[in-house]
Design a binder for these strands. Structure first.
Lengths: 201, 201
DNA sequence: GTCTATAAGGTGATAGAC
DNA sequence: GTCTATCACCTTATAGAC
């Protein structure tokens, strides 16, 4: 953290602050403190809070979304293996960055106008996955299901438990942090089992 | 909206503002404008922004969480019927209040300390549902599954697609609002199908 | 590049008249 | 109960020295 140049120190500090507090809760003073510099320098590197935020948001968004694509293109795996590997790797990614998904969803809900461009820019194309699902249905390996519904189900089962951790912890385990973490860990297998059991013929 | 007394006008305006902007993004001036009154009156009715927020948050939280309990206590329904009715009613509730879940999750993530008390206070007890799941496993009507995982899966499939609407819309339907709404509507059946197909023996 | 100092405007909250 | 006026503080952003 100390052996970074100033720009990287700012970015790291800003990511931390924005993700924890949200855009409107974040404070330039707090970012400066975390980076070990002063406010003026923030504006020297990134002209405004808004600009700095866009850099952070874009990075966070890139990290999370296009990860979907790679695995489903592989031809050495059958459809069920793809689902299993995808859910495992995606849950691992979320565990490593547990506050990013909630951050993205919240900012997209409130500041949506200015962020729409960034989403479009990333241009995730799920058509290959859709047609792959349709092919499996034709082959009779899975039951008929709307591709969009299946994709949504997969993502929901991976992401939601982490976003809802503060409440899930209390409701399901009476606040026991360790039990909740164990539960999240075992979801790496559970989610794939749940999905495959549901669609396999 | 106009035939309400002042206190109710404030509450309605405040819910709108807090849910849309989050706590730190919400402005007392904006709430006053929406309610058609001035700032001073806000403080006359609710001493501070914090107090007003707690009222709104508690109401939102109450609306969403304990809804789980009722249906699973009914003895005239088998387990699969309970799941079907629960998912349908819960998704209906979310469709009617689409911004509440994201609001709760975000505030719980950032302001967690002061809100923990409110969650505890509501004291949702899922033990009856857990033991019901275990009983079904013993009876052999569903495959073995960790009750907490199943409960989490059910909630995730209901809630996530609405919280993630801004991004799901773009990624799954290239921004087509109507197609996304249709997809959400059809989830009232889809989610129950998906779950029951996964666990039924 | 990095700092201190300060501007310019916003924000929650209160005082006091009616 | 409801208003106007105002306080005290905070926040982003910039000016200017080094």
């Amino acid at each position: 953290m100390d052996n970074l140049n100033t720009e990287d120190k700012i970015i790291q500090a800003a990511e931390n602050e924005f993700v924890e507090q949200g855009y409107s809760g974040a404070r330039m003073q707090s970012i400066a403190n975390k980076a070990g510099i002063n406010k003026a320098l923030l504006h020297y590197y990134f002209r405004s809070k808004e600009k700095l935020f866009e850099v952070i948001f874009k990075t966070a968004f890139k990290l999370f979304v296009p990860k979907i694509l790679g695995i489903f293109e592989r031809e050495d795996l059958d459809f069920f293996e793809k689902i299993r590997i995808f859910t495992q790797e995606y849950i691992n990614l979320i565990i490593k960055n547990p506050h990013i998904p909630g951050f993205i969803l919240h900012e997209l809900g409130t500041k949506k106008s200015s962020l729409a461009a960034i989403i479009m820019e990333q241009a995730i194309n799920v058509d290959p996955i859709k047609s792959q699902i349709e092919k499996e249905i034709e082959k009779g390996t899975i039951r008929p299901v709307m591709p969009e519904q299946l994709i949504m189900n997969i993502i929901a089962l991976c992401v939601f438990p982490i976003v809802a951790a503060p409440i899930g912890k209390v409701v399901l385990f009476k606040g026991d942090e360790k039990k909740y973490q164990d539960m999240i860990q075992s979801r790496k297998d559970e989610v794939a089992d749940f999905i495959i059991n549901s669609i396999k013929l």
